[in-house]
Design a protein around this nucleic acid. Structure first.
Lengths: 342, 342
DNA sequence: GAATAAAAAGTGATCGATCCACTTCTGAGC
DNA sequence: GCTCAGAAGTGGATCGATCACTTTTTATTC
């Protein structure tokens, strides 16, 4: 079982002596293969291969004071943004960074503590927070931190409403179907994206002169959608719901059904995220296809720019999301709206 | 913007000189605070606080030859097992390990290459693979690798069928409702859990003398469930489907509906995973509640045991999953089964 | 109070890479 | 043959911890 000879991996010195060069030359080879004479390079290359040498990254980190690692922090309970992570991970890799994904339990309090600790640990050179955090306290010895979806004060306007502008498109679409009375079941207001969507919703309602029976704060859960609908007064007259995401939308639909409201006959429901399951649900969900990959890439680019002290790239103003219309939305009932006194 | 004085974090030597002791004493303090005389300890404690000292983990790793880091590898496309990861992450943390989550793109080929690289990089002390990999090649300089759901050859029997035994319970339940003709839509057969479930399904069908119209290999997607159902001959007589997971089950239900088969009136469908959305779908999904936390913990315990050369803990034979019965399962139609010639 | 053991603290080496400040070698061009 | 630039070597120092030893201090015993 146990290795009799726990043979240590080769070091740069062993490579050097096998290749008949100095360790400095091997080091040079590792940094830039072209700075060596072809003849020397071949000797070193051979030795590296023969010994299956791979530089000890710990030792390198120690000397260079670079870990080349980033951390992505997310809340353990929340939905795991797989596609975004994959894209972020790949982008970071291309930029020469390893990615450590830290899933932190507890509230935003504990999360902030953990992030702070991480930021000062010297283990990572930058942090991307996908969950909301409250950052205060001294900034000394801290690495750059990018909080997804939130932007610097300088970057208000379009960017401020990142990942939310399509809410307006949704409402306008529903208006075009004939809807006039709306409900918004929002996501966890600790998340920038949830706040953004809510404020765009409220703005749009205001600007288009529509009626909103409420913007209920939820927690991204199906249960919150269910509760929001079942908690409505019977005569509120709502005919369209803008849900924070697809899961919430499923809860809304189930809640409507439990009240005897037909979807989309009596109530139209719009989701967000284009999750696979929504396409196969009954009714299938109208939703927003989100370019999670682009979001992940953008976040990492931003973080890497901050780390390197380069100018921070403007967030793309170009919309990267688009609406998908399926069975959960339709014209409102021509008879008095669902639940209205007959 | 740029820090004018990029003040380096304090080192153990600075702490030592401030406390008026040797660096070794500070080091001892870090390992075991009780090995110091109270008077000395207080001096060191004060200095640590005053300098906001935190040990440089890179330097420590270099000396101890321990990184105290584990990697969890998963396929980037697949569903992100959030709860399992959270539990695994926490368990690892308790055992003194940091967790790096590596999401690898590409097929099992590329994944294996990446894992092999990781295993030899010296960056991590152990790897937990949640996605299937094919491990061959030389084992030298490799850290322990645990592949979730698969067990050593020694551990056949109960453990071999880990995370699958409930399939038998499902079939028995459906039999008790009156079902006799079954279909299984399996998950990606590269996954041990998918293989296990399929083989338990086939065994159970055999042993109970039931009829199976097939065990279709899928890929965990809703589409695969949809295709499996819509591809059936009209007169197959199936009345119950055991799906690989909830997402597949949703696809199955939608596929049945598209053929005019009512669920659960004509067809019962059982899922797996107890995803939140399944409780709010219409019909709500009968499913298996999986203790993902326990799975995550177990996997990490196993990995840590291997790293430390301790005896590998027996996988719990106790079942950690349980069945949840909802609307998607019911008695089979008393009239000729769905799709049978009338 | 001296002998002795045990506990506490100090000394200097070490881990494996990069960086530094030179020096030496090599080969091309005139 | 001489110069000069680029390649390669020399011989450390350095990063910040831990560790194997050694030395000093403290406690215990007779």
């Amino acid at each position: 079982m146990a290795d009799p000879a726990p043979k240590r991996p080769a070091t740069i010195h062993q490579v050097a002596s096998l290749a008949g060069v100095s360790h400095t030359t091997v080091s040079r080879y590792l940094q830039d293969k072209d700075s060596l004479k072809p003849k020397t390079r071949i000797k070193v290359e051979y030795a590296v291969k023969a010994l299956d040498y791979r530089p000890n990254l710990v030792a390198r980190s120690m000397r260079t004071r670079h870990t080349n690692r980033l951390a992505i922090v997310l809340a353990s309970g929340a939905h795991f943004p797989g596609r975004l992570l994959a894209a972020a991970s790949r982008t970071a890799h291309e930029a020469g960074y390893q990615v450590e994904i830290v899933s932190v339990e507890g509230g935003s309090q504990e999360r902030s503590v953990r992030i702070d600790e991480l930021a000062r640990s010297g283990q990572v050179e930058g942090i991307l927070a996908l969950s909301p955090i409250s950052l205060r306290g001294k900034q000394s010895n801290r690495v750059p931190i990018v909080v997804s979806g939130s932007y610097d004060d300088k970057l208000h306007g379009l960017a401020e409403l990142a990942d939310a502008t399509e809410i307006r498109d949704i409402v306008e679409y529903l208006v075009s179907l004939g809807h006039r009375t709306f409900l918004h079941v929002a996501g966890d207001q600790n998340f920038a994206s949830a706040r953004n969507r809510k404020s765009v919703y409220l703005e749009t309602i205001e600007q288009l002169g529509l009626r909103s029976v409420g913007a209920v704060d939820g927690d991204w859960s199906a249960q919150s959608g269910f509760d929001a609908i079942t908690g409505l007064p019977a005569d509120c007259g709502v005919t369209a719901v803008v849900a924070a995401n697809d899961v919430v939308a499923m809860g809304v639909i189930r809640g409507a059904l439990s009240r005897g409201w037909n979807v989309p006959g009596d109530l139209s429901v719009f989701g967000w995220d284009d999750e696979e399951i929504g396409r196969f649900a009954t009714p299938s969900l109208s939703t927003v296809a989100v370019d999670r990959e682009a979001q992940g890439r953008a976040a990492i680019h931003r973080l890497v720019a901050e780390i390197r002290g380069e100018p921070i790239p403007e967030p793309t103003t170009q919309t990267i999301n688009h609406l998908i219309y399926r069975e959960s939305t339709a014209r409102p009932p021509s008879r008095p709206p669902a639940g209205a006194p007959s």
